[in-house]
Design a protein around this nucleic acid. Sequence first.
DNA 1: CCCAATGGTGGGTGTCGACCTACTGAATCT
DNA 2: AGATTCAGTAGGTCGACACCCACCATTGGG
Lengths: 147, 147
Amino acid sequence: MSVSENETPPSLTALTTYLLSKVGKSARTRLAERLADHGVRLWHMAVLAALADFGPHAQRDLAARLGIDPSDVVKVIDELARAGQVERNRDTADRRRVSVTLTPAGRAALTALTAEATAVQDAVLAPLTEQERVQLHTLLTRIHRGG
Amino acid sequence: MSVSENETPPSLTALTTYLLSKVGKSARTRLAERLADHGVRLWHMAVLAALADFGPHAQRDLAARLGIDPSDVVKVIDELARAGQVERNRDTADRRRVSVTLTPAGRAALTALTAEATAVQDAVLAPLTEQERVQLHTLLTRIHRGG
DNA sequence: CCCAATGGTGGGTGTCGACCTACTGAATCT
DNA sequence: AGATTCAGTAGGTCGACACCCACCATTGGG
């Protein structure tokens, strides 16, 4: 039985693509696990964040902003509303639209979720110094905006 | 109708966790699409890479190295074998084991797939300078080894 | 006033990855 | 030889995610 079976093939680690997808997935998974303890998934947090940052949205606008299907937004909002973190109100001007608003409970939930995300971040970025973390964040931001 | 509905919530982009998972997913998805043109998925490439870098493996060892379930390795190897990129041979010493070997066709396939990965990489990392790409790769490598 | 377009809703589909179980043939231990 | 462990295999489950279509209420244009 050979000794070294733990190492990832260098052919893969040589590819930034691979590292990106691997590390990203690790971050994603860990975060998802933490969020699950709060009974939410990643999209719930994204919706709460969008509402906190930009105020009330029509559901259609939420879908556009977050890049998800409108019919999926419905389901996420359903669950957030059931948890009292979000409020649905028919738009008085255009009664087809539903305006979604963050409740105080929702804002509190977002704070808690953000704390979880930060915790995961500390764990994932443990091997890096403070300065390197900033560096990484800057690089990722550039990529994110550009692509 | 508000003007700015395209921006991602700052609450999210402030989290390296978020950027990591988002950018990582983007890389993953793009790569998967390219690989699909060759009729393979990510695991196929990983297996080919492992065989190229470390030589023949028992299927069990492949599973251990890549961190996937042995029963899933079977399916991947099935497909690679059907494509003639890999050879199954019973280990003469321990006839329970199946030694999996890379064929020349497999090596050629890996080269092609690596080229695709590099292409995706260029696209994803387009906003970065050469030096920054190296920087990013170094940081990711540290994280990958550490976590 | 009728018709087309729009926002929201419910339901269903397909893929993918991770996982789990039962079974086989072979090796190993006693 | 018998019992136990191990490698591989076939099969199914489950959750997440993305996507799609049909339907309803409403709006706005001709």
